[in-house]
C-alpha cells in the first residue's frame, strides 16, 4: 500500500486479514486496508463483489441474521473525550454490536426514514443514548439538520411526518439522523442509487462538506461519484481487495490490469 504512508492523518480504522462468511459462502476474502481519519474512502466494484457486505461489517449489521461469521480483525481506533485513542476490534465476539452501531452510523441505499415526524427521526438516536431534555434534543437536531443541509427546507415543519419529504430530502434526513449522534464514522451504502441527478449532486456536496468532521466510507456503483467525492478508493472483485490507493492514483494510473479494465468500463 504505497502512497498512504505520506498521509499525515491518523488511522481511524483498519481491517487486517478480514473475511466474512454467509454460511459456507465466503463473501469477503482476506481483505486488509487502512482507513484514515476524516478522509472519504470509496469502495467500488461490480455487483456481488462484497463491497456492501464489507461495509455492513463495520456496524455489525450481519449480526441481525443467523449463519453469518466474521474472521480476522476489523479495528476501530476509538477516540475518547479526553483525547486518548483506544483500538476496538469491531467484530470480536466480546464487542457489543450495539456499541459499534452507536459509534459508527449508517446511511442506506434507499432512504429509510421512520414513519415518524422529521424531528423524531433525527432525535431517535439521541433518545437511545439517553438524551431526554427537550432543549438539548432541539439543539442537536438543529445542528444535525444543518449539517445535512436540510435545516432551511424543514425548519418550519419539524412535527410533520417524514414521508411528506421528497426522496432526496428523505435521504438527507437519514444522513442527519446518522450525524445527530456524532458518530466516529459514517457508512454510506450506495446512498444515491435511488435518487435523481439533482438530489444526487446535493448528497455528493454534502459528503464533501462532511469530510472535515467525520470519517466516511462509501460504497458506490458509480465510478464518477467515487472519483468526485473520495480521497481513497478500494476496488473489490469477487470478495477480494484488488487495489487500494489514493483515488487519483487508482483512476489515473491503476496498479492492476483488472482495475484498469473495470474503470474503463470493460466489465461490471
Amino acid at each position: 500500500m504505497p502512497d498512504t504512508q505520506i498521509d499525515t492523518r491518523p488511522l481511524k480504522a483498519e481491517v487486517k486479514n478480514f473475511s466474512f462468511f454467509y454460511g459456507s459462502f465466503q463473501a469477503v476474502k482476506n481483505v486488509s486496508a487502512p482507513f484514515r481519519e476524516k478522509a472519504v474512502t470509496a469502495i467500488i466494484g461490480p455487483s456481488g463483489c462484497g463491497k456492501t457486505t464489507l461495509l455492513r461489517c463495520f456496524n455489525r449489521m450481519h449480526d441481525l441474521y443467523p449463519g453469518n461469521r466474521y474472521a480476522g480483525e476489523m479495528i476501530l481506533h476509538s477516540r475518547s473525550p479526553d483525547g486518548s485513542v483506544r483500538p476496538l476490534n469491531i467484530v470480536h465476539p466480546s464487542t457489543s454490536p450495539i456499541e459499534m452501531r452507536m459509534r459508527i452510523s449508517m446511511v442506506f441505499q434507499k432512504p429509510n426514514p421512520f414513519p415518524k415526524s422529521i424531528f423524531e427521526n433525527v432525535a431517535y438516536g439521541l433518545r437511545l443514548r439517553g438524551v431526554g431534555s427537550r432543549s438539548e434534543l432541539s439543539g442537536r437536531v438543529e445542528t444535525a439538520l444543518r449539517g445535512a443541509a436540510l435545516w432551511d427546507e424543514v425548519k418550519d415543519r419539524l412535527p410533520q411526518n417524514a414521508y411528506g419529504l421528497s426522496g432526496g430530502q428523505q435521504q438527507r434526513l437519514c444522513i442527519a439522523r446518522a450525524l445527530a449522534v456524532e458518530p466516529e464514522m459514517v457508512l454510506f451504502d450506495e446512498p444515491t442509487s435511488a435518487l435523481d441527478p439533482i438530489a444526487t449532486s446535493k448528497i455528493e456536496e454534502l459528503i464533501d462538506d462532511l469530510r472535515e468532521r467525520v470519517t466516511i466510507l462509501i460504497v458506490t456503483h458509480n465510478m464518477q461519484q467515487a472519483a468526485r467525492v473520495s480521497d481513497y478508493t478500494a476496488f473489490m472483485y469477487l470478495g477480494e481487495l484488488v487495489e487500494y490507493d489514493r483515488t487519483a492514483k487508482v483512476f489515473q494510473n491503476p496498479g492492476k490490469p483488472l482495475t484498469e479494465q473495470y474503470i474503463s468500463g470493460r466489465f461490471g
Binding site: N59, R101, M102, M106, F108, P115, C174, A178, V181
Partner: peptide
C-alpha cells in the same frame, strides 16, 4: 414492515426490544 426499517433502527444502536417497542409495534 420492511426489513430496512429494522436495519435503520438497529444501525443507530437500538437493541432488539427498542426496535420492537419504538418502531415495530407502533408501525
Amino acid at each position: 414492515i420492511p426489513q430496512h426499517m429494522r436495519e435503520a433502527a438497529y444501525a443507530l444502536g437500538a437493541s432488539r426490544w427498542q426496535v420492537v417497542k419504538d418502531h415495530l409495534l407502533p408501525y
